Amino acid sequence: MGQEQTYGRRPRRGRTVLITLVVLLLVLVGLLAVADRVAAGVAERAIADQVSQEVSNQGAQASSPDVEVGGFPFLTQVLDGRYERITIGLRDVRGSVQGDAVALPTLDVDARDVSAPLDVIRSGQGEIVAETVTGTGTVTYDSLAALLDREGLTLGERDGRLAVTAPVDILGQRLTVVGTADVNVSDQGQVSLQFNDLSAEGLPNVPLARNLLNNYARSISIDVPLPELPFELTVREVRPLPEGLQVTANARDVPINSAG
Score class of each variant (00 low, 15 high):
Thr106Glu: 14
Asp119Val: 06
Ala111Gln: 11
Ala39Cys: 07
Asn57Thr: 08
Val168Trp: 04
Tyr141Val: 01
Gln58Gly: 15
Ala39Asp: 13
Ser123Met: 09
Ala62Glu: 07
Glu127Tyr: 09
Val78Asp: 01
Gly71Lys: 04
Gly99Val: 02
Ala130Gln: 12
Thr136Met: 09
Ala146Cys: 02
Ala163Gly: 00
Ser115Asp: 09
Val22Asp: 00
Leu107Asp: 10
Gln61Tyr: 09
Leu107Pro: 14
Asp108Glu: 14
Ala60Arg: 13
Asp80Cys: 00
Leu26His: 00
Ala130Asn: 06
Ser96Trp: 01
Ile121Thr: 05
Ala103His: 12
Val129Ala: 05
Gln125His: 11
Val38Ala: 15
Gly81Lys: 09
Val120Arg: 06
Leu144Lys: 06
Ala39Val: 09
Ser63Thr: 10
Val67Asp: 02
Ile121Ser: 03
Val109Thr: 08
Glu157Ile: 00
Thr132Ala: 14
Val55Trp: 15
Leu90Arg: 13
Val133Ile: 14
Thr165Lys: 07
Gly59Leu: 08
Val78Ser: 08
Gln61Phe: 11
Glu84Leu: 11
Ala60Asp: 10
Val23Ile: 13
Arg161Asp: 10
Thr138His: 02
Leu25Thr: 06
Phe74Trp: 07
Gly160His: 08
Gly71Leu: 10
Asp113Met: 05
Thr136Gly: 12
Arg91Trp: 03
Asp100Arg: 14
Gln77Phe: 04
Asp119Phe: 07
Ala145Arg: 07
Ile121Val: 15
Gln61Asp: 12
Leu25Phe: 11
